[in-house]
Nucleic acid binder design. Structure first.
Lengths: 191, 191
DNA sequence: GGATATCTACCGACTAGTTGGTCGGTCGTC
DNA sequence: GACGACCGACCAACTAGTCGGTAGATATCC
């Protein structure tokens, strides 16, 4: 039973990590935003690494849920991939979570506590596995075309999406730029 | 005339930023590596932002020099692009500077001092401009083929390279993985 | 040529503020 | 009366940055 404060700490931590990364956010920052003492944060999450792990674990779950829902409700592989790519375009446009936490933390990976790094790696594995599944299915059903095998296509797509996020961030949160980079990558699969 | 200490501080700062990012390295770290007092670092670089700006400025110059040398000595556009993509593959393989500083700092952009952020943006602009020039020339000479215009192709290539760096870092510095992602992106242009 | 002034590189010791984290304790609820 | 949520006060370690000062090279003046 996640309490309200618990969830708000998690939300705030997630937002802070998305904009600043792991090393540049502090308990004091969260304390100020949530309006609760620093000790309270330690009560829910003993250490900073615990907090970060909880954030990514929840993020992984949300991703899995989203992917699962897509697998259940959207039969066409091309539309599934468009859904994944388009999801981030919308995030950048709305500026609510304009970056993939795991991608950001991946950049900082060598300076991350081991538990946190493991979560990041796990997210990448899951994401690649999901998309590989979608692409594999799409290739077999003829909804997608690719010169490469499914896994490699998935890795290329994810890399392009992450690189496009970076480009959009440098351009001040330019969702159009993100779209103009990812659209050809998507079209290369959907034909 | 850049003194020895000055250069070593710069080198160390660059190495630290590449592995940890801007927010997770300190004057004390550099002090310990270079073997000079913290005050000495402040003597050469008054503030942390000054140091970071100097690092990226030098990095930008090195990039421009490298790109210029390629433009001068390598006439074929396809080989120029392969040179750019292959450069990073070698960096990852040698593990000397296994990540583009500007790409790493781009992720941290919202938490960067404005002067540093500006340098990062400037690097991206220069890099895109250079590659756009290469691709534009290559398209006209028939050495390259692309469904998109030169600038867009350049942005796609850069995004793929940066995303592939991220993937390689997550995979523990896997240069093969980097190559397997970037190679198709390159082949899409070189035909 | 010798005394003097200036400059650069460098350092130890310090500061104010922040970091993640601990402690003992209070409050309300079950 | 036990328990979870919460808090203020505290801590040692670290942060970027400052200060006054030293050693050595170089330039200036007589």
């Amino acid at each position: 039973m996640a309490s309200d404060t618990y969830t708000r700490i998690l939300d705030t931590a997630q937002a802070l990590i998305v904009t600043r990364g792991y090393n540049a956010f502090s308990y004091a920052d969260i304390s100020a935003v949530v309006g609760v003492g620093k000790a309270t944060i330690h009560h829910h999450f003993p250490g900073k690494a615990d907090l970060a792990v909880a954030v990514i674990a929840r993020y992984r779950q949300a991703t899995e849920d989203g992917m699962g829902a897509m697998a259940a409700h959207e039969p066409r592989a091309d539309k599934r991939l468009a859904g994944y790519v388009g999801f981030w375009e919308q995030c950048i446009r709305d500026n609510n979570a304009p970056f993939c936490i795991a991608a950001l933390l991946a950049a900082e990976l060598p300076s991350l506590p081991p538990e946190v790094a493991e979560q990041v790696k796990a997210h990448f594995d899951e994401l690649i596995a999901r998309l590989t599944g979608f692409i594999d299915e799409g290739l077999k059903k003829g909804e997608l075309t690719s010169a490469e095998d499914a896994e490699r296509s998935a890795r290329i797509l994810v890399a392009t999406v992450h690189g496009a996020m970076l480009a959009a961030r440098v351009a001040g949160g330019d969702a159009e730029l993100y779209a103009s980079i990812t659209e050809p990558a998507l079209r290369r699969l959907t034909g």
